[in-house]
């Protein structure tokens, strides 16, 4: 059973150009998958299709082998949590507590259990102190943590991050990355992260690259990210480590490792000591 399986998916906003054009891919259970691509390549549209915010043109979306249709949208939305890019656009409640409660109320959780659930998830994202504050007074990183708590309280099996850290400062970014990594490692949650952060992609289990509405690359970061020319032709950028390895190659130094910083450094130090 795959958490996400997409077959020949098509979508168009204007019935002329396919923003998502015959896309097929699989996200494996418990994996940390990254979805990258240039602005306008169709990444966010995919996220919205996966949670039924947009209706597909044709093709098939399967969540845990269950086809996404109007009829089972509710069941499927319980399985998937999503955090969007802009922390300011996803708050409803007057306080952090209300905001986390909102999703629970929607899912008809017994009010007697609600307080415990809220406290538990607020603690998990390290926001217990802020439960009675207005969300508008929080920093960007704190807002995204509350958004994640609200999503987690619904106990989804799959978490989709749609550039969830791109509006945050470095501190906020690392807070969220650490939290997501913990959810992935400790709870085995399946993560699909739409991102521009090349360093995040390097560490992921699986990478999908979109270009002009199509998935053009699908595989291991260590296979895909190492081709500088190709990354540039896809309107992306190669990791610094890959660019450095190529600059060294032009100077006659050929490395076995060209992606992982630590291994590259070890290899270079060995070369230096051998000279």
């Amino acid at each position: 059973m795959n958490p996400i399986k997409v077959n020949h998916l098509k979508f168009s906003y204007d019935l002329e150009t396919d923003v998502v054009n015959d896309v097929s891919f699989t996200v494996e259970k418990g994996s940390y998958t990254t979805l990258i691509g240039h602005n306008g390549s169709g990444k966010s549209t995919i996220a919205k299709l996966l949670i039924g915010l947009l209706e597909k043109g044709s093709g098939e979306i399967l969540i845990d082998d269950l086809e996404l249709t109007e009829a089972n949208l509710d069941v499927i939305r319980r399985k998937i949590g999503i955090v969007f890019q802009n922390p300011d656009n996803q708050f409803i409640g007057a306080t952090v507590r209300d905001d986390i409660a909102f999703g629970l109320e929607n899912h008809q959780v017994d009010p007697a259990l609600m307080d415990d659930i809220i406290n538990n998830y607020a603690a998990r994202v390290d926001m217990s102190k802020y439960l009675d504050q207005e969300p508008t007074r929080l920093s960007g990183g704190q807002k995204q943590r509350v958004a994640i708590a609200g999503v987690l309280a619904m106990k989804p099996e799959i978490l989709i991050l749609d550039e969830a850290t791109s509006m945050l400062d470095p501190e906020g970014k690392s807070e969220i990355n650490a939290l997501v990594n913990a959810l992935h490692k400790e709870y085995g949650m399946t993560i699909l992260s739409i991102t521009h952060d090349i360093e995040e992609v390097k560490k992921s289990d699986h990478v999908l690259i979109m270009f002009e509405g199509k998935i053009v690359k699908d595989g291991l970061p260590s296979e895909i990210m190492i081709d500088e020319k190709e990354m540039i032709s896809l309107k992306l950028d190669a990791p610094f480590s890959v660019k450095l390895a190529n600059a060294l190659k032009r100077r006659g130094i050929v490395l076995k490792e060209t992606l992982d910083t630590e291994r590259m450094v070890a290899e270079l130090c060995l070369l230096r000591s051998k000279k």
């Binding site: 240039h38 309107k235 950028d237």
Partner: peptide
């Protein structure tokens, strides 16, 4: 902020 690597 929020632009893709080449756009940025």
């Amino acid at each position: 902020a929020g632009l893709d690597p080449q756009g940025s």
